[in-house]
Write a protein that binds this DNA or RNA. Structure first.
Lengths: 211, 211
DNA sequence: CAGCATTGGACAGTGCAGCTATCCAGTCAA
DNA sequence: TTGACTGGATAGCTGCACTGTCCAATGCTG
């Protein structure tokens, strides 16, 4: 398969594929001559994965590369998940305001979770809590506990669903589940909110329709 | 309070405040002369809210404006939630691949939710499901049902927690809860995943620490 | 009342991310 | 042979979120 065929197959324009090759998101094709390279079905799959991570998962290109790298390497599952979590948390947790970090730590301790005290997810939680408090909308502690319970249940089932032992397949399953299910979960929460809010407050005048 | 005082108070640089004023994210101050305007405590609050929506919620400036606009107007709660949902779903749901849309519709029907068939959240769900399937990682139906249940529980409790009737306060509570709690929920899920994955697969060699 | 730092407002410029377009010589099928 | 197409390199574009510069008008300071 030449690059144009890969483009046709995947729906991604040739220049964009070249860009991904440059950025190391896509392994180079097997060179069959100075000006020819052969791309495989594997490249099509990878390309779709890149698009899914970038568009569905909303990851910046550099983070997509990080995630892909730890799928390719023989990374232990928990480490790979950490990379995925870092990718999702965005920047390296710019600043964790002290009070937010404290609240986040307390929450996690209360939940009985054993987590890395320096991980990006904890920093993000702290930043979010601090920002909410700073904006005048502290999260209700009871609501927070409900969130913790829901997160614990969902995550436990997700981790239990990871097949087999600490293999490359398991890593792929876990990492992609983490990244790509986020938008699914968020969309479901919003749909459920819509349902319950309509139930309680009535339907809007003209539906909520897109733009 | 002059603009420089507002900047000092909120930690946002003066040029950025001017930018927000231009973009309509911040109401103009009360002019006390051709070259003076008075800003209030309300502006400080609003400014913090803008930053929270943009940084914690990750909304682009234009979406922040939409959300703020429906907090200001006398928007019915369910409609306001729809605006918030649209803001969060990002672009106006560019394309809903037919099979994804179908799967999303079936899922919602199965959950017993009554939602607007044209809403952006449904489109986003369809797009996410389609992308997952296209990338070779279809979501396990059982996992999906668990997600639906978790989303339903969380959302029901959130909507129940909205105070009083369909007032401006209730709208603000609901909209900001929807937008600003997303990162909290996501961070909690990741922390829970870390906990359970460590439990099942063991701790990584050197912690998952940031960058 | 004089003078100068400051203000609001307009507008142009910056930096980054993610592509997209152009160019080029080498090649491979026709 | 020939000419469309390729991989590779490099430059340019678009959009977003600011940021910097300039200006006349002002209003506090003395």
């Amino acid at each position: 398969m030449l690059i144009s065929a890969l483009a046709a197959e995947s729906g991604v324009p040739v220049p964009t594929i070249k860009y991904y090759l440059r950025e190391g998101l896509l392994p180079p094709g097997r060179a069959t001559g100075t000006t020819r390279a052969e791309y495989s079905e594997e490249h099509v799959r990878r390309l779709r994965l890149v698009r899914a991570l970038a568009e569905v998962g909303g990851l910046p290109i550099a983070r997509v590369r990080d995630v892909l790298a730890c799928l390719d390497g023989a990374t232990p599952l928990t480490t790979a998940l950490g990379t995925a979590h870092d990718a999702l948390a965005g920047s390296p947790a710019p600043e964790a305001p002290a009070d937010g970090a404290e609240a986040a730590g307390a929450l996690v301790a209360d939940a009985g979770w054993r987590v890395d005290a320096g991980c990006s997810s904890l920093a993000q939680l702290g930043a979010a809590l601090a920002a909410l408090a700073g904006a005048g909308f502290p999260v209700d502690p009871a609501a927070l506990r409900r969130y913790v319970r829901a997160a614990d249940e969902v995550a436990r089932e997700e981790v239990d669903a990871v097949p087999g032992e600490d293999t490359a397949d398991a890593v792929e399953f876990a990492v992609l589940g983490t990244v790509l299910h986020e938008p699914v979960l968020l969309a479901l929460r919003r749909l459920a909110q819509q349902h319950h809010s309509t139930r309680r407050f009535g339907a809007p005048a003209r539906g909520e329709g897109g733009e």
